[in-house]
Design a protein around this nucleic acid. Structure first.
Length: 390
DNA sequence: TCTGGGGTCCTAGGACCC
DNA sequence: TCTGGGGTCCTAGGACCC
């Protein structure tokens, strides 16, 4: 019988801050922005802050109203990645197959590890103790015969808890589950559940597959049909590589001036191309995203015959797309861009079609990347983006 | 209370080909 | 004459997750 643990670090960013700064411990910590930051949102609230009603995705402005005495931080991703790596290394001592699904979560396949660590609950106990002792962090665990249920139950006894669904109980568990706890069903789907009077897994269980697919669409209908029968979701099992790379920026105040917008776009191009170079991927498809002040969002993408190879080339493509889409005079709150359909860098076309000019440019960009890696403080960039720096 | 940033997957329609 | 069906690729938009 297969057995999986879903491990989820508790209030991760806030916990790391409390670990690094003893004076924050026992106090409400809110990571995501400083009180004055317009348009920032909470990425993690410590459990002390949650008592005030502060939660993830809440605007900082609102959080500050609820909890003016809180400790507000913009956060330090480098440090969080470091701690995450420490924890993941510990996980790999307990399972030959650890699949990290975000910075603070992973699945551990512990099928057949009984001789080494004992039964699942025993393993869970040891794992939690080791994470606590060696990193100072707490983790919540869910244990079940498939990943989907393990994922749902790790949330049940947070923080610092462990929940198990024994083999054979999967379907009964899912049928008793309130629909609000179904993973993969967000706000819009919850509204639909309400419309159709579906309150728990059992209500969904009673509907035939055809009804589910006609209400929720082919793929999601089938997903629900399987989920309430205690079956694991296929999406957790297939190998999913990185398929796109993007960067975006929300401005504190809406932008109207095209030159300023394009300058921001150029800065985004640099970010993306340096990341692309660093990963040694390539892409023929570029996309742009524009969010207007009224929050309406539009996007456009275009594919080309050969991979995008320089910052200027990316900027040219994006700037064309931008002008095709943009309604002049309409305030812009966000501009974003990216590359889709990423392929590995040594694929077919490599080099053959570059003219010497763009080859030189690409070399320069590689060189800048190297310098920045060697001297992290250097912040070397190409021309236009200096204009946006403060 | 006006709503981040970086991703993934699904859907529907059109183009194009056989 | 007014019209099939399947496959594949591309694009725009939307839902969802952490």
């Amino acid at each position: 019988m297969a057995c999986f643990i879903h491990a989820d670090l508790d209030a991760f960013y806030a916990s790391v801050e409390q670990l690094d700064h003893p004076e924050y411990r026992g106090k409400p910590v809110i990571v995501g922005g400083l009180p004055g930051d317009r348009r920032s949102v909470v990425s993690t609230a410590s459990y002390e802050a949650r008592k005030y009603g502060v939660h993830s995705a809440m605007p900082i402005v609102r959080a500050y109203e609820l909890c003016p005495g809180g400790i507000y931080l913009r956060g330090n991703m480098g440090r969080y990645r470091e701690k995450s790596a420490e924890v993941m290394a510990i996980f790999s001592n307990y399972s030959p197959e650890v699949k990290q699904i975000s910075i603070d979560e992973a699945f551990l396949d512990i099928t057949g590890t009984e001789k080494l660590f004992g039964p699942p609950l025993e393993t869970a106990k040891k794992l939690k103790a080791e994470v606590r002792d060696r990193t100072g962090l707490t983790v919540s665990l869910g244990i079940a015969s498939n990943k989907y249920i393990a994922k749902i139950v790790s949330g049940i006894s947070k923080p610092d808890g462990t929940s198990v669904i024994p083999p054979g109980d999967e379907e009964a568990f899912m049928r008793s589950l309130p629909v609000s706890k179904i993973w993969g069903a967000g706000n819009k789907t919850q509204e639909q559940f309400k419309t159709y009077g579906l309150k728990n897994g059992d209500d969904i269980y009673r509907l035939p597959l055809e009804s589910l697919t006609s209400i929720f669409g082919k793929a999601f209908g089938l997903f629900l049909y399987r989920a309430v029968r205690g079956e694991g979701a296929a999406s957790f099992d297939d190998e999913r590589g990185t398929h796109s790379m993007s960067a975006e920026r929300t401005f504190p105040y809406d932008l109207y001036d095209e030159f300023t917008i394009e300058t921001e776009l150029f800065a985004i191009c640099q970010t993306i191309m340096f990341r692309l170079l660093d990963c040694q991927w390539q892409s023929r498809t570029v996309f742009i995203k524009i969010r207007y002040k009224d929050f309406t969002t539009t996007s456009a993408q275009e594919s080309f015959g050969r991979p995008v190879s320089t910052i200027n080339e990316l900027f040219e493509h994006l700037s064309n797309l931008f002008h095709r889409k943009y309604h002049p005079g309409k305030g812009i709150r966000l501009i974003g861009a990216g590359l889709a359909n990423l392929e590995t860098g040594n694929a077919v076309r490599q080099g053959e079609l570059f003219n010497s000019g763009s080859e030189k440019e690409r070399d320069l960009e590689k060189y800048i990347l190297e310098i920045n890696k060697k001297f992290p403080g250097a912040a070397l960039k190409k021309g236009r983006s200096w204009l946006t720096d403060t």
